[in-house]
Amino acid sequence: MKLSTLTELNAERAARRPAIVVTDTASGEQRLVKAVEVAADPLHAELSKQLRMGKSASIEVDGKKLFLNVYAPTAKLVIVGAVHISQALAPLARSLDYDVTVVDPRTAFASPERFPDVPLIAEWPDVALPPLNIDHYTAFVALTHDPKIDDPALLHAFARDCFYIGALGSKKTHAKRGERLKAQGASDADIARIHAPIGLAIGAVSPSEIAVSIMAEITATLRLPKAAA
C-alpha cells in the first residue's frame, strides 16, 4: 500500500467516513474509494453492496480477483443514564471495541468514582448529545427510567439514525413512552425502532447480566442480516 493511500485512508477513518480499498491480489494494483465516490465508481454495484453490509470480501471481475476491504467507522455506544447497569455496560462495550460515552445530568450518578476511565458528561441531553456527532455507526441506549432525561435523548437518537436504539422499561412503561414521544413529534416508525424492553431475553437478573443482554442485542443488530435482526 502506498503511504499516500494509507494516510488518506487513516484521515477518512478519523473523520468517521467509510472507505473501501480495492486490491488486485495478483498484480498488487490498488486504489482507495471514499464513500462519496462509490456512486460514480465502475464497481458501484459491488462496492455499495459491501459497504451496506460493512463486510470485506473477495470478488471476481473480468477474470481479475479483487479484494474489497471495507473500513466502516468504529462503532460508538452512547449510554444515557449513569446507573448501576451502565457501570457494567460501559467496560463491557469497551472490551468489544466500542467508543463509549455516558451522559447523565445528575451529578450524584455521573461521578468519576462510579465511572473510572469512561468519558462522562454531566449535562442534560440537549447540551451533551449534539457535540457527540452521533451517527449511523452509533448504538444508543436510554437507561435513566426518567422521561425528562430519556425522552429528549431518544428524539435525538431518531434524528441521527442510530443503528441501534434501546430503552429500559417494561412493556407498560414503553407504551406510555411511545405516547409521550409521539406527542413530541416522533413517528410510529421511530417508536418501532426502539428495542424495549431492552436486551435479548436471556433471563438476566443482575446489572452485569442485563449489560450482557444489551450488548448481545446490539451485536445481533450490527451483525445479523437485516431481515433476521
Partner: peptide
C-alpha cells in the same frame, strides 16, 4: 482495533521503519 493497527502502520513508516500489512482476503 483495526484503526490502531493502520495508524501504527502509518506512524512506523513515517518513523523510518520498513512496514508490511497482512490482510485476510478470503
Amino acid at each position: 482495533r483495526d484503526q490502531d493497527i493502520l495508524q501504527a502502520a502509518e506512524d512506523w513508516q513515517k518513523a523510518g521503519h520498513g512496514v508490511a500489512l497482512a490482510t485476510v482476503v478470503e
